[in-house]
Design a protein around this nucleic acid. Structure first.
Lengths: 361, 361
DNA sequence: TTTTGGCACTCCAGATGTGCGAGTGCTAAT
DNA sequence: ATTAGCACTCGCACATCTGGAGTGCCAAAA
């Protein structure tokens, strides 16, 4: 029989590995040599396959659960698999339609958009879907309003250019100078429009003496309002849906793995940090690979060593303002899921830009 | 031996039942006659105890998991047990302190109050804690503001007397008459202040012709704003914390029970309805029993047949505006938990009233 | 009449054993 | 380089066994 060149050999190995992973993803059970020999794409005997699998195991792509079980892909194998999925072949039109239908109905507010998005992700993937709301870090103040509530409380309403509305009560010990409300509001709007949220507080406190031109009263008033309104608050607006889905998977039978996972989902703050970290590292500089995949131990959090995270970001203009994605088992249909996440990211981007731009822009 | 009167007999039975439940709550394992005989409070032989337990079983208070296991309390037994816990003896001062400390720090906004409350409940109980935000049904509109965003969008901000702020974008097809903003705002505030939220929409739409006095333009404008601003939106503001806690309990080992439960917690909307229903039935009319307990099958939802729900409501003035509580296994330390929930309800009531009333009232 | 000790009985839980099948690794033949 | 064949290894499912915990009932004691 003809001698195989090293290149051909490697190529075959790769094909075999893909077959193993593919099969394992489908069934979730360790896959043995006999089965693969049965499939038509590889035309080899079980014995040969065994040899190759042996190699792959030595190179760290496969493992045995125990001596006489089939092979199971390692994280390294998944990584290889995902990397080779550059194609990202278009979803069948049908599925694309499905996404639209499921998602596009009645979203008018940011809040609804987030809710709808996480739910859609969860339903279509059958795993856990999440979205982070447009981050305060990335947004700029567009408008600010001070609404008097009573003699010693007023409500500061802040609207960001991403369409997110935040509000905050400002409480005074005694009655505040009501007549200064409007002038202050004007000043604030003048100075703050377009400022990134993160800096708004310091900038303003730094330059607040400029207000002094008017009145001594105003100074204290302005300072207090600023302090309170822009005090760092609860962050981590993250929407999670379908946490239950993931629990019904066979691989999470042990109550230990399971609890870990729920713990992650429970601690939304932590989850938010994790996701932001994932996307924060390399800024929007790199021509973005659109969809990122973290497999098992590649994740920062050890609690997520048994799951994979597929995420993408959505943008407003050219700023990436939020992240969305799904959390599922390591063995999942990566190509479909990556597509789903990708589509959703685009959908959200579109929706967001239209919402903020208004219907006529 | 002396004859026992029926009364004495019943009394003993009761004591025995309590002992069984108590023990089962502690250990989670079926309790047998021998064990109870060992305890000093009952001074009876195992045989006698068996007899009595037999009776209790026939009356539906106890069951066998299988022929030769100890007895396990039924829902009926738990109900009995809870009903007999009228005492609600004060928590040890220490624990009361703990609640204060854990909870009272830095809550200034309703949102933070809710967050902090559910978290506190969860941490102190080690189960799952929840709070429903002050219901829209129970609140009245206190103030309303219309903030122009751009040529065809404005933001309606509504403040309820419970301190909850809602906002909503109103989008116009074309530009709206900006000069009518202030008059409309005034009119709205005049007519709507003090109206219950639930009715605000119809009332206004009914009487909207009254505005007609001014201008024809105004009519359409006002109608559109009203429609959009008060359109029924996402309801179910419910905060849930510590969903993970409950999963680590031995009784939820089977993935089936477990998934049910997570499902409930996942579907916050459903959970909210459930809870509201629980408290909606008999209005605030009855001198309120402060803390309510639903055990297993007493719950409306079949998904909750394996857990108990301990809840109480908090009030603003004399209106009960929200519900809080914990979800835990049927076998839990009812007296302690009921106390906890009770305390928390009082704490939230205090905080809420102070917040809304302001620091000087 | 009530309580109690005794006893037979039941049934689960855990330990132990067995056969089977799936899958491997190696070697010798092709 | 590939393949067939074969011995070997384990885990899994199943049956079997056994100890113990707990019951129900009965007859004796209080």
């Amino acid at each position: 029989m003809r001698t195989l060149s090293t290149i051909e050999h490697e190529e075959r190995k790769r094909r075999l590995l893909q077959a193993v992973i593919h099969q394992y993803i489908k069934t979730g059970k360790p896959v043995g040599s006999a089965f693969l020999a049965g499939g038509r794409s590889l035309d080899l005997s079980p014995a040969t396959i065994r040899n190759v699998m042996g190699e792959l195991e030595r190179e760290g792509y496969l493992t045995h659960p125990h001596t006489s079980a089939g092979r199971v892909p390692t994280d390294k194998a998944y990584r290889f698999y995902v990397d080779s999925l550059v194609d990202l072949q278009r979803l069948a039109i049908k599925e694309e339609e499905r996404i639209r239908q499921e998602h596009e109905s009645r979203i008018r507010e940011i809040n609804e958009l987030m809710l709808s998005t996480s739910k859609t992700l969860s339903v279509l993937s059958n795993y856990t879907g999440f979205v982070t709301a447009p981050g305060v870090d990335q947004s700029r103040l567009q408008h600010m309003e001070l609404i008097p509530l009573d003699a010693h409380r007023l409500l500061a309403v802040m609207v960001s250019d991403t369409g997110v509305v935040k509000h905050r009560q400002v409480v005074f010990e005694g009655p505040y100078p009501r007549e200064l409300l409007e002038p202050l509001e004007q000043t604030l709007n003048q100075r703050l429009r377009g400022q990134p949220f993160t800096r708004v507080r310091e900038t303003l406190l730094d330059h607040i003496e400029a207000i002094h031109q008017r009145q001594m009263d105003m100074l204290e008033f302005a300072r207090h309002v600023t302090e309170e309104a822009f005090a760092p608050g609860e962050s981590a607006d993250i929407y999670v849906e379908g946490a239950g889905n993931i629990l019904s998977l066979p691989e999470f039978s042990g109550p230990d793995d399971l609890r870990q996972l729920v713990h992650v989902l429970d601690e939304k703050r932590a989850l938010g940090d994790l996701i932001r970290e994932e996307w924060g590292v390399q800024g929007s500089g790199a021509r973005f690979p659109a969809v990122r995949v973290s497999i098992g131990s590649e994740n920062r959090s050890p609690d997520m060593k048994n799951v994979s995270l597929i995420s993408s970001c959505y943008t407003l203009g050219d700023r990436q303002v939020g992240v969305l994605g799904i959390i599922g088992p390591k063995r999942m249909e990566y190509s479909r899921m990556m597509n789903l996440v990708n589509q959703m990211a685009q959908a959200v981007t579109t929706a967001l830009n239209r919402m903020v731009g208004g219907p006529h822009e």
